[in-house]
Design a protein around this nucleic acid. Sequence first.
DNA 1: CACTTTCGAGAATGACGTTCTCCGCCGCAA
DNA 2: TTGCGGCGGAGAACGTCATTCTCGAAAGTG
Lengths: 236, 236
Amino acid sequence: MTATDAPSTSEETAAGGTWRDRAVERSLRNARAKAASRSDRFIRAASEIVSETGRTDFTVQTLIERSRSSLRSFYQHFSSKEELLLALFEEIIASSAAQWRAEIETLDDPLSGLHVLLERIHKESGATDGAGMNRALSVYHLELANNHPAEYARVLAPLRNLIFDLVQRGVADGSLRTDIRPETLAVITMQTLVGAAHMHALGAEPDGSPVDSERLWDFCLGGLTGPPRAPAGTPR
Amino acid sequence: MTATDAPSTSEETAAGGTWRDRAVERSLRNARAKAASRSDRFIRAASEIVSETGRTDFTVQTLIERSRSSLRSFYQHFSSKEELLLALFEEIIASSAAQWRAEIETLDDPLSGLHVLLERIHKESGATDGAGMNRALSVYHLELANNHPAEYARVLAPLRNLIFDLVQRGVADGSLRTDIRPETLAVITMQTLVGAAHMHALGAEPDGSPVDSERLWDFCLGGLTGPPRAPAGTPR
DNA sequence: CACTTTCGAGAATGACGTTCTCCGCCGCAA
DNA sequence: TTGCGGCGGAGAACGTCATTCTCGAAAGTG
């Protein structure tokens, strides 16, 4: 702690950091560069704290100590703590989505793309140590969904779009069902992925039922391609 | 508001109230009758407040005013506000699940049962007016999942068991896939249902993509029965 | 050097949850 | 009737936070 405000941000904090973490960090830094250097300090400090603790309930005091700044300037740049968190997670999601998109675009099968995406999301959310960011991200999703549903939908747009693009490609090449609008299919898929990631990240899965990413993928695949044939009857 | 503490609890608040709401209310009242009459007051008051406002962030002050009681006795019966909410939602979920189970057991096709269940959950969570309870329930799920994952899993058990039983029946009569353990299938299904209900309740669905219960069911059905045939390859 | 803008330090405020203290009230035994 | 033990009402007190406000001290500008 008390890191110099020099470049290297999180070499130590990203103890369990994978290459992906660092890549995300890097693109995050880019995004930051655009932002006013002032707000930057706060975002960076918040990012560090969240990465280390995996929680978003740090106090504003802690934040300003970490950012070597003052309450006054904090509230000069962000109208509230929530706004800061929103900004932080917006950046993270956007850059993660960009990251995933880049990785996935090298595959030509959209189903493989979805599978890979599912594994990324599920794995990252499951990282128990070091990558507290992912856990916090899951947790914060929920708070955000509660408090600002509209913002929530907006912030998740990059991920939704990524899934949507893959779904559309899948529809185009005939590997996905067409009896559900691709937009809807994408939203349902995203909800399923994100929901599962939440439970996984929180360890809220019941005892005897491990939801590993393969089973989850099998389930989604079924949902995405459609049932073998119309089974029994639909109720009234 | 300022309803008498007489019987009829939510006739007005349940403007969009279906018979089911009232049935749930009734069985809730039964459950209450068993509880110590003291704690009862608090649970009932909380239930009223939540039904009316659709939020769980009422202050303890409001609660004790409504329950015509005192802070002192509140903390004598519940160690914290959270514990109260937990108790309240445990009751609600348990009785709702019992209610649904009763309704569904009259159907002989397990798939129909799941379909009906999905519609119940989705509809109730979507009620925009009056039935604030359902909305609050969704919201509180999230908070609970965040703060006490273990309790969360426990409280949801009745619903999970209900789904599990249906899944097992479906497996038994050959209408559901067998390549995923029924426990896992049930958990995934529940996560999908509950997740969708959350988004629906919160209005957090993106603009152009209505996730109506039929589409959601189609998706789940696919996931539950399995893909038509193994399509393309799985990624590395 | 006056003058404005910027921002650090930190006190003040206001909401809440939670604890604590005082005291009346009710049932009960002698 | 009097004395007493405990339940529970009223509400003051405390601790933690987010958010605002106040006071100056640098730092750039003429």
